[in-house]
Design a protein around this nucleic acid. Sequence first.
DNA 1: CGAGATGTTCGGCT
DNA 2: AAGCCGAACATCTC
Length: 270
Amino acid sequence: MPELAEVEFYRKQWDCGLRQIVTRVALHKGKRLFRDTGTERLAVRLLSRRLVGSEARAKQMLFRFSGAGAKSPSLWLGVHLGMTGRLSVAHANFKPGKHDHLVLFQKRQALVLTDARMFGRVRLYEAAEPPGWWTALPPAVTSEDFTPELLAEFCKRRARLAVKAALLVQTRFPGVGNWMADEILWQARIDPRQLCGKLSRARITRLWEAARQVCATAMETVGIDFSDPPRGWLYHARWSGTGRCPRDERPLQTATIGGRTTRWCGKCQR
DNA sequence: CGAGATGTTCGGCT
DNA sequence: AAGCCGAACATCTC
């Protein structure tokens, strides 16, 4: 489920645990979620550490814990929520359910990671600086580095790729997922089946603007309190099979593009 | 009961 | 050889 803004929302769910020490760790050993980091190591290392900060970028989260001693390096917990992951807070006497694979107990509450399908991943690093995979994440769609020129260059290199599939490429559109990709194309009035190489410079600029707008607005709504995106967005129509285009009321088209269910308006998207 | 799901990765094909 | 596509991953819901 989680894309850019949902990830930011979930990250904040653990904020109430800031400045507090982990008193107990519960986890489900051997689950796919922990494929990068042995579960034994995870449990041992997190114990007695203090949660001191967190950040979300793209679909990734990075939680920082204090070192074991004053001079010890920080501990970094990387979390990706996959398709069905979420973070929540529970009472200190919480009993983990079947899909609550990682629970960090603190004095006043428990920080819970739930993920039924386990497409997510958890990884642990001990170092003074954040891990390389984190610092190497591409520039955010809303950043100054994400320029129309960068997008034009990308479209040129991926000339044979449908633009819908292109929007899901995380190295260029970090954090954009399936519903955001559809929203961006609808707002830019571009047919998701269009090949990147066929897009005019003017349409690439429209795509660039729509991408930035959708990402920024999603962060201000979903990212703040999980409230709905603005009225009039495709978002509200795309979930039901009978959904209609908010602009012209035409029934939405449905197809699999880039391996994902895609919905668009055959009239206003060209 | 079968199909599909707001994601990533890998193997194979062009 | 880069780049594209489909399958696999594991579980739940419609």
